[in-house]
Amino acid sequence: MTIRGGAPGGRAPTGAGDDLSNLLSRIATRDASAFAALYKQTNAKLYGVVARILTRGDAAADALQEVYVRIWEKAGEFDPLKGSPLAWMATIARNRALDEVRRVRPVSVEDQPEGFELAAEEIDPLAARERSEGLSALVDCLKALDEEKRAIVLLAYYRGSSREALAKRFGRPVPTIKTWLHRSLAQLRDCLAS
């Protein structure tokens, strides 16, 4: 995978990330063939991000379409010094999916997806074999959280679970979940800064 950030003045490392960076800079000049190549390389990855949040019908497919239109429009804003191309695209994808899931269902029921084949699957980044520098640092910090609190952060990130859904799932009042989230996020921020 890619390496986040990079030494000032240094070149980005070679590999998939470098290719995606090049594609994005070409897309910024309205290069449609670069966009087609980027779509080919990343659509299953980004669909993996949106489909875990938008679990109903065609919502995820529709959102993915919007995500790529946005990538086409915003490619010029990608800054390789601020993160990997994939991280940038995944952020766009998550934001779109979250806007949609909150809009459609203000009171979230995403803890009970209908006939969603991935319902039982939980992602464990701690078990990921291949990790970028950025993910390694984040995983080290996640390990320092209690297991339950870590699970809450990961469910929120990967499944777009709302505070209410998390409260239901973990049998805790919503304010407790909120407090836990704030503590966990502050702990992650301080850990990543150290």
């Binding site: 890619t2 299953a44 990855k45 991000v49 952020t91 950025g134």
Partner: peptide, 11 residues
Amino acid sequence: LAPLAEAAPEI
């Protein structure tokens, strides 16, 4: 938080 997306399997 973005590095977490790396660990999301493709679909």
